[in-house]
Amino acid sequence: MTQFTRRNTLGLMAGAATLPMLGTPALANTKLVVGALPFTSHAASFVAYERGYFAEAGLDVEFKFFQAAQPMAVAIASGDADYAVTAISGGLISLAEKGATKVIGGALSEEKGIDGQKILASDAAFQAGLTSPAQLAGKKWAVTQAGSSFHYMGSKIAQAEGVEVAFTPLQKVGAIIGAMKSGQVDAWSIVPHIAKPLAGSGAVHIIGDVAVYIPDYQVTTVFTSATNAADERAKTEAFLAAFSKGADDFNAALVDKTAGEDAAEDMVKLIHKYVYTDREYEKAKPGIVNGAMRINAGAALNTTSVQDQLDWFKAEGLVKDSVTMDMLVDTSYVSTM
């Protein structure tokens, strides 16, 4: 009997999803601003740009970099960016409720068997006894803003352990890293390409895995303005098709490791143009390699995970109870599960 893993299923669905994209009309150097964070998790966009997939689709892409998810959502709503990839935040949901933004696909995912996001303790907290998530009671958990993915993860972990934590907003990832190193906050969760080098330096300690608490978590999504989703179908399909080709290359090189050692080396060098640019290549390479998580094939979207996130935001009073999945997500572009 054939067994289907989650990865198999996503791959099969993605193949079906990309078929209509093959007929996407050619676009003539359509200018796009793509929002991103300088993280390995955004590699699909970087690969699509560097390998000409955006250009082949008729898209002239410029990147706009952010330090947190919520400002990116505001940029999409205001027209300062056209497409973006980041975690679902309270700001994104509220803008979707107002008819300004739409989630149109999936990107980074937690997947069983693939090293994912880590739960971290500051060295000071670790030395004081915070050696597992079960000991988080009363600890300061770092977030960028209330309603961020860090808030969602911390809350779900605390709920599972039956403890309460003090959420500490620090606005930017860089500020959180500094606060973790200095012991101003006690705990945080973050993608492995950031977590592992920090832990390797002794500044923090890995005390758990997010996937244990939030299995199959749709960590990041692809989103755009509601206007683009509704009225710019050719452009949106072209973006998703090129993005998906970038994701395929990334997964083959660094996640499934089916493309060979040379391809993996080329991929790390490509990503290094955007990630850990302040470090020499040899010092940046381990963090990039060890931080590779699955980017959904075909930008397939785990709507079950998105619904769980939406339910949490509503239960916490961070968004209106009246917000629905139809307001947040346009499911017409990619396969869903």
Rank of each mutant, 00 (worst) to 15 (best):
L10D: 14
A17V: 02
L27I: 03
L27S: 10
A28Q: 11
V34P: 02
L37V: 03
H42R: 04
H42M: 15
A44K: 03
G52A: 09
A57L: 09
E62V: 10
K64L: 13
A73C: 06
A73E: 08
T86R: 10
S89Y: 02
I93R: 05
S94M: 11
A100D: 06
K102P: 15
G105P: 12
G106R: 04
A107P: 14
L108A: 14
E111N: 13
K112Q: 15
G113D: 15
K118H: 13
D123M: 15
K139Q: 05
Y152E: 06
L170R: 00
G178S: 14
A179M: 11
S182R: 00
D186Q: 10
D186R: 01
D186M: 12
V191W: 00
H193W: 04
A199C: 06
I206F: 05
I206R: 14
G208H: 05
Y213M: 13
Q218D: 02
T221C: 02
F223M: 05
T227D: 14
N228K: 01
T236L: 14
F239M: 02
F239S: 00
A242W: 02
L254P: 11
T258R: 04
G260S: 06
A264T: 11
E265W: 06
D266W: 05
K269L: 03
D278K: 15
R279V: 01
K283T: 15
K285C: 09
A292P: 02
M293A: 07
T304G: 09
T304M: 09
D311A: 13
K314F: 11
A315T: 04
L318R: 09
V323F: 11
T331R: 03
S332P: 01
S332E: 02
